[in-house]
Design a protein around this nucleic acid. Structure first.
Lengths: 230, 230
DNA sequence: TTTAATTATTGTATTTTTTACAATATATTC
DNA sequence: GAATATATTGTAAAAAATACAATAATTAAA
């Protein structure tokens, strides 16, 4: 072990997760109500300082699992924020992740460091502590560009979904409309969304067919040089 | 200041830069020959531990400026690597950046921590210390996906370049060929590459026209909803 | 000065993809 | 069975991508 290393500047490192959910009212973000300093008693992104014996991604997953109780959540690192004064207690680098979850699978477990957790519509995000508003903006952009090129939208939908739900999802995230016919043609022409044979129930109008995402078919396509692009 | 914070786990943080260059023989990466432990006397990505009083991006720029003497280099954060055992001396998170430079503008200044710096063809990268091979692979993928959607290729070319050079650049990075006629048609149909009126000199055959990238026109286009995609 | 060698430049027809646009079908509720 | 509500589908036109090869401009050599 090198002497110089021991005496070198050290900083705390945290992860902050931007957790997206989706229901028929639109895109949502999960915020927690902080029960500890700094910024006690305000809404913030779920995040925590991490310990030295845990890999980075494992730490991010742990923070999220503590909060939600869910496993196998789609997560992706988006950016590391490291301005000198971003944390009032000292130098803290934070690695931001975004996560996509099926909002209805979902029972929140507000964890030790949070008094409460709640879904906020993406258009009604309050002022957040630290640089969390900046992180969220970054995550939104990332989601927007990612969802056009990778089939990650399905992580936000129930296992069985209607094409209308899928279209609404894309429209919410991309903030644009699609022509119904052209959207369906394009989606179905990619071979990885399959008809389950099932239909919606308990709707007061013509029930829609239910589809599911077929990951195996998608990876087959990828191997043939196919590129998803919506 | 919070007591708990002071006693919290702290780690060192470094930046590692993947510096790409390009000349008529292809895509290159800048490596330094380490003059200090750990991994003294081997080729590695230029990187360094960072100090607590410098913003993250500023640190990355500083590492690169020390090495190259250049300013206003195109840099972009790509990923943070944080496996527990990635550094032999203790927990070190490293934030990786990629940088694009005009290889010929360029006189290397091997800096304090390096005995030497040299360009390596992308296909002849030796085994590197730490997780640097993984970082480089990640950077290559990032460059590949970025260059298709943003006009960053010009950062690698001289101010005045021929269309053949531009095509070779794209072909090297994307690892595929383009039809000469179709490539030129597409590039010129986007309005941001303009003829300088100049021609190549000192070539032993028909000299090619020299073009330049027009950033102003590009940003005008972007504002009209145009999306670059090659 | 002609010829050879080398690279630069350009156009057209075909195929594929994207876009624009509205009528009909299927379910429930009253 | 009529009203209401959403789901589903096709076609023509425009735009973009692709496939393909002949001619032009320069230097070097004969």
């Amino acid at each position: 072990m090198d002497n110089q290393f021991e005496s070198y500047f050290k900083a705390a490192v945290s992860v902050d997760n931007v957790v997206f959910g989706f229901d028929n009212t639109g895109l949502k973000v999960l915020l927690i109500y902080r029960g500890a300093d700094p910024y006690r008693n305000c809404w913030a992104l779920p995040g925590d300082l991490i310990s030295l014996d845990t890999n980075l991604l494992d730490s991010a997953e742990k923070v999220l699992q503590d909060l939600t109780g869910l496993e196998e959540i789609y997560m992706e690192q988006i950016h590391t924020f490291g301005k000198v004064d971003r944390h009032p207690y000292g130098r803290v680098f934070t690695v931001a992740y975004f996560a996509l979850i099926k909002i209805e699978d979902y029972h929140l477990h507000p964890s030790s460091w949070a008094e409460e957790a709640a879904w906020f519509p993406i258009s009604e995000i309050p002022e957040l502590p630290f640089d969390h508003n900046e992180i969220l903006a970054y995550a939104k952009e990332q989601l927007k560009s990612k969802i056009r090129r990778q089939p990650i939208g399905f992580e936000l939908l129930p296992k069985h979904f209607t094409l209308t739900e899928l279209q609404t999802l894309y429209e919410s995230i991309l903030e644009r409309g699609f022509d119904v016919r052209n959207f369906r043609k394009k989606i179905l022409s990619m071979d990885f969304i399959t008809d389950t044979g099932l239909k919606q129930t308990s709707v007061t109008h013509r029930p829609a067919k239910l589809y599911k995402y077929n990951a195996k078919r998608y990876s087959n396509l990828i191997n043939t040089g196919f590129a998803f692009d919506l």
